[in-house]
């Protein structure tokens, strides 16, 4: 008897779920995109930061305040802070998920690192705003 070679699907998953290809988590590409977008944003922003550091080298506090008092500088620093800490958060998460194996420890380390990143990011942003309006 001829063997039936007609393609057919022998899986429990619905064909719609299979076509969407999102797996059990229902999402997946968002973090990948966010990491690349922040990376792309950080290319000009980090060059701007390097330039700012060279301009502000050895500057006193008054010069810092004057620099941040320029709206463009304050805005670029805020963008830098946002993109940098967002990118850092995702990068450190990937590293932690790779190397910290025990579930409880991994979740604890992730929460601590994310809390620290929120704290640092907000502290940096508030400082820029304070310098900008002082």
């Amino acid at each position: 008897m001829q063997k039936d070679t007609t393609p057919s699907i022998h899986i429990m998953r619905s064909q719609l779920g299979r076509a969407r290809g999102l797996g059990a988590a229902k999402h997946g590409a968002a973090h990948w995109w966010a990491e690349r977008l922040t990376a792309a944003a950080l290319l000009p922003l980090s060059l701007y930061f390097v330039l700012s550091v060279l301009l502000l080298k050895g500057a006193g506090r008054a010069a810092m305040a004057a620099y941040m008092g320029e709206p463009w500088n304050a805005v670029l620093f805020l963008l830098l802070i946002f993109a940098m800490f967002y990118h850092l958060s995702m990068g450190l998460q990937a590293v932690i998920e790779d190397y910290v194996r025990k579930d409880a420890k991994r979740i604890a380390v992730l929460m601590l690192v994310k809390a620290g990143i929120w704290f640092l990011g907000l502290a940096a942003a508030v400082s820029v705003l304070k310098l900008a309006v002082s």
Partner: peptide, 16 residues
């Protein structure tokens, strides 16, 4: 650079 972000923040906070 994550550690550098701590120094970066310290720089801005001290300025403020």
């Amino acid at each position: 650079l994550g550690a550098g972000a701590v120094l970066f923040t310290a720089w801005l906070v001290c300025a403020a």
